[in-house]
């Protein structure tokens, strides 16, 4: 069997009122691993993270990094990040997500929290960029504040979605921050 390396399985962006803003899925690659990720299943996984955010909030006073939230099984683990404005980013890692390329960390070696930091920083950067778009109204994406007809509250900006897709595909354990941001 080929040796496997960790990859991002899912990126979830969650709003202040715990509403999903955006969910991107990234199927595992390599022979025998091509099964599609189930959107509903990952939506449930993201839901399980919300209580952990809330429980850890008092002790995580100063940092945005919430580290490992919990590990679901041998393969799937969830890492969290929360901005000062209450927007949460969750990255679901599949330990055996991709074929290990030369020199990269393999599944057996495990991950450090700091391995995810570049990805989270890139996500936060993407979100800040989204807020700079004058046509994006943050209040229209919050169920408590929206005034218009309540349709989908998810982010529709193609630039943001493209950037999240790029981050999910580009990340590998040990990537540097400047590499993450192109």
């Amino acid at each position: 069997m080929d040796s496997r390396s960790p990859s991002i399985a899912c990126i979830g962006v969650i709003g202040r009122s715990n509403n999903p803003l955006h969910i991107s899925l990234f199927p595992a690659t390599g022979p025998g691993y091509e099964a599609e990720r189930d959107r509903l299943e990952f939506s449930f996984m993201l839901n399980t993270c919300l209580d952990i955010f809330e429980a850890r909030l008092p002790s995580k006073g100063l940092t945005h990094d919430f580290g490992l939230l919990h590990a679901l099984d041998e393969r799937i683990a969830m890492y969290g990040w929360m901005t000062n404005t209450g927007v949460k980013f969750v990255i679901v890692i599949d330990i055996e997500g991709t074929v290990a390329e030369g020199g990269r960390i393999t599944a057996g070696m495990g991950l450090r929290n700091s391995d995810l930091t570049p990805a989270f920083q890139a996500l936060q950067h993407a979100y800040i960029k989204l807020l700079r778009n004058p046509f994006y109204e943050p209040d229209d994406h919050d169920p408590k504040l929206t005034k218009g007809p309540t349709g989908s509250l998810q982010i529709a900006s193609p630039n943001f979605i493209r950037e999240v897709e790029r981050i999910g595909k580009a990340w590998y354990p040990g990537i540097r921050s400047d590499e993450m941001l192109k």
């Binding site: 006073g61 100063l62 940092t63 945005h64 901005t83 000062n84 404005t85 800040i128 807020l131 700079r132």
Partner: peptide, 11 residues
């Protein structure tokens, strides 16, 4: 606030 509280500790 989104842009400039990014590097600040959480109030």
């Amino acid at each position: 606030v989104e842009r400039f509280s990014a590097n600040k500790p959480r109030p």
